[in-house]
């Protein structure tokens, strides 16, 4: 599942709530069908996480941190860890000296090395170069292909989600605006271009006026727009996010 939303929407807070690092003001969280506070330890043993900021000891080398973490997880797999280190070409030098991308990759390797059934990834592709990003997404797809596994993935790079997510939730100012299957999104949201006067009459989730025309996103059936003199195409995630966040903008 992909989680999108503008800065400050609450994506990181939601991740922290899932890990019980932040207390939810209301509501209940259940992971693997269990209460995330009462069953905290067993749940976390089955969760891998990647934060945007490196949480590990900066003065230690990856293998030293892994040695400590291997004591924490019941299903730590050294062979898998070594394979992933090799695959991503992770340097064996103090974490403080690794690039932002390498730090992220190390977190990802740790998250995978204990055979987590759920991965919580908070902006994992931020700071990755295109090659590593592609490898990262490939490995994520391999992980998901492995069986009953889930990924909760927050990002600003919506194209990443189009590659790996089968469901998207859009968080805006702490509220979920929608939570839909990716396939449904392209059927449900349409990017519409038409004359300004025409678009003003259509009930759009957001639009923007240009010099000669206006552009906006419509939520509903494509057939609703067929009689109108406008161009219609499936809205991308970025379009939906942009127009839903900004609303009607002149």
């Amino acid at each position: 599942m992909g989680l999108i939303g503008e800065n400050g929407a609450g994506k990181t807070t939601l991740m922290k709530i899932l890990l019980n690092l932040v207390r939810a003001e209301e509501g209940q969280v259940k992971i693997f069908g269990k209460d995330h506070v009462k069953e905290e330890i067993t749940i976390k043993d089955r969760i891998g996480f990647v934060f945007e900021e490196n949480p590990y000891y900066e003065n230690l080398k990856p293998s030293q941190v892994a040695k400590i973490l291997s004591l924490a997880y019941s299903r730590w797999d050294w062979n898998y860890y070594r394979d992933l280190v090799k695959l991503f070409g992770l340097s064996e030098k103090p974490i403080a000296k690794l690039s932002k991308g390498q730090k992220m990759i190390f977190s990802f390797i740790v998250a995978l090395s204990h055979h987590a059934e759920l991965l919580l990834l908070d902006e994992p592709t931020a700071g990755l170069d295109p090659v590593v990003r592609r490898e990262f997404l490939n490995e994520l797809r391999n992980y998901l292909a492995g069986g009953d596994r889930s990924v909760f993935f927050s990002t600003h790079i919506t194209t990443d989600l189009e590659l790996v997510a089968d469901k998207i939730a859009f968080l805006h100012k702490g509220n979920i605006l929608f939570s839909e299957d990716v396939d449904e999104l392209s059927n449900k949201y349409h990017l519409v271009r038409a004359e300004k006067s025409l678009l003003m009459k259509v009930d759009l989730i957001g639009y923007e006026e240009k010099k000669t025309h206006a552009i906006g996103v419509y939520e509903g059936e494509r057939s609703d727009l067929e009689t109108l003199p406008c161009s219609v195409e499936p809205a991308s995630l970025e379009d939906i996010m942009y127009f839903a966040t900004r609303g009607r903008h002149v």
Partner: peptide, 17 residues
């Protein structure tokens, strides 16, 4: 190291109460 938040961030994220 002045940076790693062991007790407030890292360890509570691991499988420990």
């Amino acid at each position: 190291d002045g940076k790693t938040d062991s007790y407030r961030r890292l360890l509570p994220s691991l499988p420990f109460g």
